[in-house]
Design a binder for these strands. Structure first.
Lengths: 110, 110
DNA sequence: AAAATACTGAAGTGCCGACTTGACTGTTCT
DNA sequence: AGAACAGTCAAGTCGGCACTTCAGTATTTT
């Protein structure tokens, strides 16, 4: 494998930070440079670059440097990991609710 | 409205913590008491109770105390908030990719 | 070539939140 | 009633991480 598997742990931690979520929301509109992200958010380039590193590590973003400018964009991998995690919990959760429904139905039958 | 609206901010922050995600994973199997959660995780009751508070505040869990035991279970509201947030970003992201596809197709037509 | 731009890297600060302790309340068991 | 149990509350500790500064590199502009 070229890179370590992305864990739900990583992705949720990454999106646990409001600044990183803001970055993701901005990038959902289209690619941007580091400074293009930093300016509206009111942070230093360094701060944004550090956040970008985290987002890349967990498959939520990727970056490419051409010339002196690094262009950042979103990546779907991280999203998929989250969606899968959520779907799995929702599935077992709804099984519970179903069983509860069956139980209550039995109660009604007496 | 009886309670303040749940923000994506809250939910992602809540699941950003590994212990809280472990609690959610445990609760996905079925309801549990505070001590039932604390024991396998190796934390104090207080720690777990604090985490539960966070999970409840963001609509991921709810608790009910009967006698001396507080029973905790999952709730779907928090999950829905997350799913919606993700879906929205994915949507605009895929619009981007579509436009890129169109662009590349045009290139080919050239 | 000089200046401005875009970023990088190392190192430090400060604060928030995760977790603990200890004292307490209320409940169940014997 | 007394003891064990389940949880609560207030207060404190401590580490990690978000963010900064500053000095440096590479690129573009004039």
């Amino acid at each position: 494998m070229s890179r370590a598997a992305i864990t739900a742990d990583q992705v949720f931690h990454a999106l646990g930070d409001p600044t990183r979520r803001a970055i993701v929301e901005r990038l959902a509109q289209g690619p941007a440079s580091i400074s293009g992200l930093a300016q509206p958010l009111g942070f230093t380039l360094t701060a944004i670059a550090q956040h970008l590193q985290v987002l890349c590590d967990c498959g939520l973003a990727r970056t490419e440097k051409v010339g002196r400018v690094r262009t950042c964009s979103l990546q779907t991998a991280g999203f998929t990991v989250m969606e899968d995690w959520i779907a799995e919990r929702r599935a077992t959760l709804e099984q519970q609710l179903d069983r509860l429904g069956d139980f209550l139905a039995q109660e009604d039958d007496g």
